[in-house]
Design a protein around this nucleic acid. Structure first.
Lengths: 150, 150
DNA sequence: TTTTCTGCAAACGATTTGCATACAC
DNA sequence: GTGTATGCAAATCGTTTGCAGAAAA
């Protein structure tokens, strides 16, 4: 089980780079642990924090998200709605990245696991000399629910 | 050859929706026809127009791009550099969409043809009930040139 | 104590919009 | 002529940054 991520791991990663473990950073990370499978924007995080208890400056939220991304804890992604969204990076070397299905009617984002792209990556690397480090796949369409509504 | 796109097709599409064929719109489309394989932002288009001859308001460029996208003539895409980019939509039912290889060092964007995703789409549709209308695949990595520079 | 954070407000860059004028039809 | 488009400048929205005070280490 490579991804039982804990606050302790977080502390360690911070120390390695002489960063400090602040309550704000803990709270931001905690939100992502409490909302698995969601794709939260900076505003989302800020709102959730406000609702629960602790007000954190929006700028601090942005800075925390950037830090968490640099530490490899969060993944940053864009769904075309004008803001960046994040989720915990559950990638481990033996796992396959998941793809996103984005409903163009209700905006819902679903996830889909697949490993078909492994072959494609190898093919691309050998044909183009490009060294691939990451990929991002988005499918746009209409979800089941929106299809049944008329 | 389904994609010999012409200004006449453009005129027709505009008329269908009671839009007008203005010189500005023609020039914007012409730029994309003159720059195949490039992924131009609104600023890029505006700069090219300025360099060549005709100054067009930036707002008009944005409005033209949006219109061309709605008419299905341009495809809008994001490469994570903070702005939307466009290229002529060369999709036709018998062709496969191309993917993008984005070099995270020099920012270069290359294209890659593949049809592996056809199977994946069918798989997703049958498993999830999601009706896929489009997809977008990006590979991030380091291009051949950047690899050889140290 | 020293260095790194936070919060605020101001700055930013891409994109959008209101409105008066200009132009395609 | 009539309705749509343009150009400009102002507004907007997400995100970033400068700086002084606060808090980890």
């Amino acid at each position: 089980m490579a991804n039982a991520f804990s606050m302790d791991d977080f502390r360690k990663k911070l120390q390695e780079r002489q960063h400090k473990l602040t309550p704000q950073r803990q709270e931001v990370l905690q939100i992502f642990m409490d909302h698995p499978g969601e794709h939260l924007s900076a505003e989302d995080v800020h709102d959730i924090l406000r609702e629960s208890k602790s007000e954190i400056g929006l700028a601090t939220v942005y800075r925390s998200l950037e830090l968490l991304e640099n530490l490899g804890i969060l993944l940053k992604m864009e769904f075309g709605d004008g803001c960046s969204r994040y989720e915990i990076d559950t990638t481990d070397p033996s796992m396959h990245r998941h793809h996103h299905l984005i409903c163009t009617q209700c905006g819902k984002v679903m996830e889909f696991e697949d490993d078909l792209l492994e072959h494609l990556e190898q093919d691309i690397e050998s044909k183009s000399g490009f060294h691939i480090t990451n990929h991002e796949v988005k499918f746009f369409g209409v979800c089941k629910e929106c299809q049944s509504e008329r």
